[in-house]
């Protein structure tokens, strides 16, 4: 038997001899066909980068979220603080103006008419000199504050409605009698301030010193200090109702005053509309508030 015969024999018998595969072979084939379609091909290309992205995205997202959370926290806290300071203070600005007008009133008792004609134009250049005079005026305001809180509220309402200084003056003139009574007391109590006034008065002799103040902050702060330190508790209770939110900001500024730091009007959110002018001619003290 030749090799070729042998080959042919096997080829003929075995080449196309079918052998039935097991019955579940097709099922296996199908299940494997679906598996690679879903898994194998994506694993080659899509899956590895996707996993990397997921791994990277996890921490990155966490950072973003935490950063966003921190920002929102800061924003919310800042807004909250600023709300305490800013929002309610716009009415408080008028409050300050009112107080100044009360400061006007004591001076008005002697020369009520003189207050109005006080020259506001010349006042402006002497801005710098205003700051040293601040405490003196503050004391006056304290005295005023001691006068009555009801008046303040009235004045607040009036100021909100109308900003004219003249009209407020007329209103405030009414309680002057009470203030006059209280003012001397304050003067006695706060002797250092008086000294300051005296020194200023001495300095005023040669040049006519006109004190210009951005009164809102200092006036209000003095008001607050007066109410806390001097006034009776019921009055304190009243003030929060009228300008409750304002109190926080005011107290803050009071703290600044105590600590010797600069009183920041901007923090109080007070727009610099009202100026208090104060000048002394001899023993006469003339104060005037100007709203710009």
């Amino acid at each position: 038997m030749s090799a070729e015969d042998l080959d042919k024999l096997f080829r003929d018998k075995l080449k196309d001899r079918p052998v039935a595969p097991s019955n579940d072979a097709w099922a296996k084939l199908q299940s494997r066909m679906q598996a690679p379609a879903a898994e194998e091909t994506p694993q080659l290309f899509m899956a590895p980068p996707a996993q990397e992205q997921k791994e990277e995205r996890g921490p990155i997202r966490m950072w973003y979220y935490s950063a966003a959370a921190a920002v929102t926290m800061l924003l919310s806290v800042g807004l909250w603080v600023n709300r305490d300071n800013i929002d309610p203070l716009q009415p408080s600005g008028s409050v300050a103006a009112v107080e100044q007008q009360r400061t006007v009133t004591p001076s008005a008792q002697a020369p009520a008419t003189e207050v109005a004609p006080a020259p506001s134009q010349t006042v402006e250049p002497s801005f710098n000199s205003a700051t040293p005079a601040a405490p003196a005026e503050a004391d006056q305001v304290e005295a005023l504050a001691s006068a009555s809180t009801t008046e303040r509220q009235q004045a607040n309402l009036m100021n909100r409605k109308a900003t004219n200084t003249t009209s407020t003056q007329t209103r405030t003139t009414e309680p002057t009698t009470v203030k006059m009574v209280s003012e001397p007391v304050r003067m006695a109590a706060t002797t250092p301030v008086k000294k300051q006034e005296e020194t200023k008065a001495a300095s005023e002799t040669a040049p006519l010193e006109i004190i210009v103040k951005l009164d809102e902050a200092q006036a209000t702060t003095t008001l607050a200090s007066a109410s806390t330190t001097i006034e009776t508790p019921p009055q304190e209770e009243e003030t929060p109702t009228g300008s409750g939110r304002v109190l926080k900001g005011i107290l803050k500024q009071v703290k600044n005053l105590k600590d010797g730091e600069k009183v920041n009007l901007a923090e109080l959110g007070i727009t610099k509309h009202t100026y208090a002018l104060e000048t002394r001619i001899g023993n006469k003290k003339i104060t005037k508030t100007i709203e710009l």
Binding site: D16, R17, P18, A20, P21, A25, R32
Partner: peptide
């Protein structure tokens, strides 16, 4: 073709399980 190809696979691989595995792949 499953039958004939199973035959082919069996000619190379004694084990029927192996042959079927090869058939499926």
């Amino acid at each position: 073709y499953a039958g004939p190809m199973m035959g082919v696979c069996l000619r190379y691989l004694k084990n029927e399980m192996d042959a079927e595995e090869v058939l499926i792949t």
